[in-house]
């Protein structure tokens, strides 16, 4: 398998694009909340320089309809499935995790602790992780926001609270104005900024967290090529998620997987394609050796 490729939550509906889902190693659902959510009013998306803004607002059927109606159809696809859960309080996270606990169709839960388009829970990320941890024995990935001064501190707290892994990073908040009217292009003005512009931000976050904690990291943010994916791995990610690139290129997983293998081999990391040593180029800590520590 080499470096597992996932989709970033909210960037793929496996039920409308099963062939894209099957081209990934792990499929992550759109974030599920305890109750159904209508989401934000349109206009919801706007392309900007080097990326796009989205303001979807966690539209979804709620955890009960998800488990009863969506999950059987997702399981029928035969893909390794992670469920992203979100909410507006520790209780919300706990409720969703409890509902998924023990469900063999779900191999891990990603905690969306950082949606840029809805109100934040009053608790800290670590408190939300702790509430989720108490509700399930499933593998928990904490998805953190890049919009914080010391993401390594948040990562350390999330791991201490029971996170088994990290998903880095969610979108940054952005605003785009209409060229002529100078009014916001999105109905709710501000949205989540993703795409290539997010790439160096994601790389810095992965790098900082890999040095601070010893759990698997799914790196994501603006990956459009195998080279981009390889850089996240070099900074400390053990898996890579694709987001905005899937909108432009449904064949991106296969292409990026091939490019990643070639880019790694070209640098002498041929073993990246060896399933027994998927982390061979995980050099996040190596980046700090004397030889490379010139910056």
């Amino acid at each position: 398998m080499g470096v597992p490729l996932l989709n970033a939550s909210g960037c793929l509906d496996p039920l409308t694009a099963p062939e894209v889902a099957r081209s990934l190693d792990v499929v992550v659902t759109k974030t599920i909340t305890p109750l159904p959510r209508r989401g934000n009013p349109p206009v919801r998306i706007a392309e900007v320089e080097h990326g796009m803004l989205n303001s979807i607002g966690l539209q979804g059927p709620g955890i009960d309809v998800f488990v009863d109606d969506h999950l059987p159809r997702l399981a029928a696809l035969g893909v390794d499935l992670w469920v992203s859960v979100g909410g507006f309080s520790a209780e919300d996270f706990a409720r969703c995790c409890e509902r998924l606990d023990g469900d063999e169709r779900v191999s891990a839960i990603e905690l969306n602790l950082s949606c840029p388009n809805v109100e934040e829970a009053p608790e800290t990320a670590a408190e939300l992780v702790a509430a989720a941890r108490a509700a399930t024995t499933k593998t928990l990935y904490a998805k953190l926001s890049p919009a914080q001064w010391d993401i390594a501190a948040s990562a350390t707290a999330a791991v201490a609270a029971g996170a088994d892994g990290l998903s880095l990073v969610n979108a940054l908040r952005g605003l785009a104005l209409d060229e002529r009217t100078l009014q916001p292009r999105l109905a709710l003005a501000v949205g989540g900024y993703t795409g290539p512009g997010l790439r160096p931000v994601a790389l810095a976050c992965v790098y900082a967290c890999a040095a601070a904690v010893d759990v698997p990291i799914v790196g994501m943010g603006g990956v459009v090529s195998g080279r981009d994916a390889l850089e996240l791995v070099a900074a400390g990610a053990s898996a890579v998620a694709l987001g905005t690139v899937l909108f432009a290129d449904p064949l991106a997983p296969g292409r990026i997987r091939a490019e990643l293998g070639a880019e790694a081999a070209a640098r002498g990391f041929a073993d990246i394609a060896n399933p027994s040593s998927p982390l061979v180029v995980r050099t996040g800590k190596n980046l700090q050796t004397d030889e490379n520590d010139t910056a």
């Binding site: 919801r44 998306i45 909108f247």
Partner: peptide, 27 residues
């Protein structure tokens, strides 16, 4: 028509209102 990122149901960007809910125009 609606602003649309993917065209195949992935992004939920192109919604229109129907019966009080938002549905994807591309789907």
């Amino acid at each position: 028509e609606a602003p649309m990122a993917c065209g195949y149901g992935a992004c939920y960007g192109c919604v229109v209102e129907r019966d009080g809910w938002y549905v994807r125009l591309c789907v």
